[in-house]
């Protein structure tokens, strides 16, 4: 992981081929960040199974969390500037400024935000910035049983994440890129089990 904070742009790659839906990342996130009961900063959802067994079945797991967009719609709509982006590209919420209007929740296309009923402010994945500052992996990436999550500096061509992206150029997929949010979370399409998705995006 790079330590040059002026040019770092943290991003994450999630290889959907490797995710087994074990939810270990979800649990690790809750433990690491003391996420309130009933709330989740990330969840692994499942698409399918749909289609006809045995040859036409489609199913894949989809870890869903804040995409730490380069152009986040949550920041644009937030009237309090509670939501902001660090120089390293991590989108955070300042709980001391948020007044819980929920417009960021409405504006986020990724269902990444929720209101904490205790603090009455909005929260979401913080990409474990406290661990990134110590050159450690976020809890989800550290815990992932299959190693499907790779975190790193997207601006550094030598970083692991850049290498993984380079080696899997035909599998890059960002959710709803047409909205112009430029997510920093890139998924690698499953090689099998997501034929409808691949077909719809011309892969």
């Amino acid at each position: 992981m790079s330590t040059n904070t002026t040019t770092v742009h943290y991003g994450m790659v999630i290889d959907l081929d490797k995710c087994t839906g074990c939810q270990a990342c979800s649990v690790a996130c809750k433990m690491e960040n003391n996420v309130e009961l009933g709330l989740f900063w990330l969840r692994v959802k499942r698409m399918g199974p749909i289609g006809k067994y045995p040859d036409d079945v489609e199913m894949f797991y989809f870890p869903n969390q804040c995409m730490h967009c380069a152009e986040p719609s949550c920041i644009k709509v937030c009237p309090t500037k509670a939501t902001y982006k660090t120089e390293e590209g991590v989108v955070l919420v300042d709980a001391n400024r948020c007044f819980g209007c929920e417009y960021c929740i409405w504006a986020c296309p990724y269902e990444a935000r929720s209101v904490n009923p205790k603090t009455k402010t909005v929260e979401k994945c913080i990409l474990c910035v406290h661990k990134l500052e110590k050159n450690e992996k976020p809890a989800c990436a550290y815990t992932c049983t299959t190693g499907c999550r790779i975190i790193g500096d997207l601006n550094d061509p030598k970083s692991e994440i850049s290498q993984v992206l380079k080696n899997n150029e035909d599998r890059h997929f960002t959710i709803h890129s047409e909205f112009g949010n430029e997510p920093s979370l890139v998924y690698l399409l499953p090689r099998k089990g997501a034929e409808t998705l691949c077909k719809s995006i011309g892969r």
């Binding site: 969840r43 698409m47 399918g48 749909i50 989809f62 869903n64 959710i175 409808t196 998705l197």
Partner: peptide
Amino acid sequence: MFPMYSVDLNL
């Protein structure tokens, strides 16, 4: 999240 599927993601 995946409008190309008739069903939605589930938990």
